[in-house]
Design a protein around this nucleic acid. Structure first.
Length: 418
RNA sequence: GUGGGUGUAGCUCAGCUGGUUAGAGCACCGGGUUGUGAUCCCGGGUGUCGCGGGUUCAAGUCCCGUCACUCACCCCA
């Protein structure tokens, strides 16, 4: 009997795992620099939170949730997205009672029961940011810009920002009715007809040519915004333009979660196969009230770490990984090994990433291990050296080797590494 | 949920219309050098040919089933 990672999940292994960490760090850095503070919420929540927050009509809730009963009979669900849990925490702990906006960022796994394919997993990792409690179009622009900066600083270039406004409770219902009457005159299959009933906006995003062909001239939300929404949207665009963020007006942009309204955006990349979105978000002013909280506005995004990695690979961008070991100890014999063991610990205590050869590999094997470790220097120590009170310090790049007094070794190494 | 593709060594793959001991490159291990890596030379195959059944004198190769992976539809980060 042997086991493999469950369908749709995968292991993040070295050496790629360091890139994974670096991407997660880089995507969240702009938010951290902008006053967003870290929040960590449970990976499972009350099933009702997602049903009401994300929306019963969404595919995510209706067929993609990992739901189970715990031993106490509670219905819990592995989170399919991050915003609902964060909003729940904001409400539960009354974070909105302090200064607004409440700015939060988070990172972690999410779960959706979907058929896996390139860039789509059942267990996927997102970095998220949310700004709650202030309805200012400039805040929308800030949030969008934070994601933009994250991708840019990673070295990603081939991504595009799609932007639109979904209107609000004033202008969306009449538009929705208008769209539904337009769609009712089209030749659509039963499945799509049902979708037109539940969420007609989503039909606009259909990729199939036979559907696309009929969508010319379909009414779009941005042409039917109420004056408040239109003004808000103008403010967002003015803000983005002011800081050099480039976007593409995309009226047919639709998000999969019901809570989005007004500002809505998606970052797409062409290098991932069929799954083009590497991040997305928008304004969710109705979410708090929908899950029993006060009337709180909010705007945020979630960026897919897995998909960003695919995009980086597609562009051939190398992400600088964290520091590897700098010094590697090569002992000859047990006496020397004991001395090197203590020396290695002292190097680490002095802040120098260090490792050494364990087990009886022999000198050749230990040197090989030193080479593979990526270390800049090897410290070779044998009985002969101990007698002389020195260690052999070898520069693994040049091959130069010098004898250094043992009591000056750490200082010498620190000096060479700076 | 629906459809297509692929399963041979740790990895990437070769193995022609079935034919006898299953291969290559890389990686890995050992030696050349019991005090020196990366380079070089020599040696080592580390394998349930995904799994089960069938056809055949003979199956990695053909057929059926099954599982896994993968790509796309759908959906979405």
């Amino acid at each position: 009997m042997s086991f493999t990672a469950p369908k749709g999940s995968y292991d993040i292994l070295p050496p790629d795992s360091s890139t994974f960490l670096a991407v997660r760090d880089a995507l969240s850095r702009p938010a951290r620099l902008a006053g967003y503070e870290y929040i960590e919420t449970p990976i499972f929540e009350d099933t009702g939170l997602f049903a009401r927050g994300v929306g019963e009509s969404t595919e995510v809730v209706s067929k993609e949730m990992y739901t189970f009963d715990d031993k106490g009979g509670r219905s819990l669900t592995l989170r399919p997205e991050g915003t609902a849990g964060v909003m729940r925490a904001v409400i539960e702990h009354k974070l909105y009672a302090g200064q607004l906006p409440v700015k939060l960022w988070y990172a972690g796994p999410n779960f959706r029961y979907e058929r896996p394919q390139a860039g789509r997993y059942r267990h996927f990792t997102q970095v998220g940011a949310e700004a709650v409690g202030v309805d200012d179009p400039m805040l929308d622009a800030e949030v969008v810009a934070l994601a933009w900066d994250g991708y840019r600083t990673l070295g990603l270039r081939g991504f595009r920002l799609l932007l639109t406004s979904l209107g609000d409770e004033t202008c969306r219902p009449p538009y929705r009715a208008l769209l539904q009457s337009f769609l009712s005159n089209l030749d659509l299959d039963a499945d799509t007809r049902r979708r037109a009933e539940i969420n007609p906006l989503r039909v606009l995003d259909d990729k199939r040519p036979q559907v696309r062909a009929q969508l010319d001239g379909a009414p779009v939300m941005v042409d039917h915004l109420c004056s408040e929404c239109a003004e808000h949207y103008d403010g967002v665009r003015t803000g983005l333009a002011a800081i050099g963020v480039e976007w593409e007006e995309t009226p047919q942009l639709v998000r999969g979660l019901d809570y989005y309204m007004r500002t809505t955006f998606e970052f797409v990349h062409s290098g991932l196969g069929a799954q083009s979105a590497i991040g997305g978000g928008g304004r969710y002013d109705g979410l708090s009230a929908a899950i029993g909280g006060p009337d709180l506005t909010g705007i945020g995004w979630a960026l897919g770490v897995d998909r960003t990695l695919l995009a980086l690979r597609a562009e051939g961008v190398a992400v600088p990984a964290g520091p590897r070991v700098q010094v590697y100890g090569v002992p000859l014999g047990t006496t020397a090994a004991a001395r090197l063991f203590a020396l290695t610990a002292a190097l680490r205590a002095a802040g120098v990433p260090a490792d050494m050869a364990y087990g009886s590999r022999g000198l050749k094997g230990a040197m090989k291990a030193a080479d593979r470790s990526g270390a800049a220097y090897a410290v070779v120590l044998g009985d002969r050296d101990i007698e002389a009170g020195t260690a052999q310090l070898k520069d693994l790049r040049s091959g130069d080797q010098v004898a250094v007094p043992l009591d000056a070794l750490i200082a010498t190494i620190q000096e060479k590494l700076t």
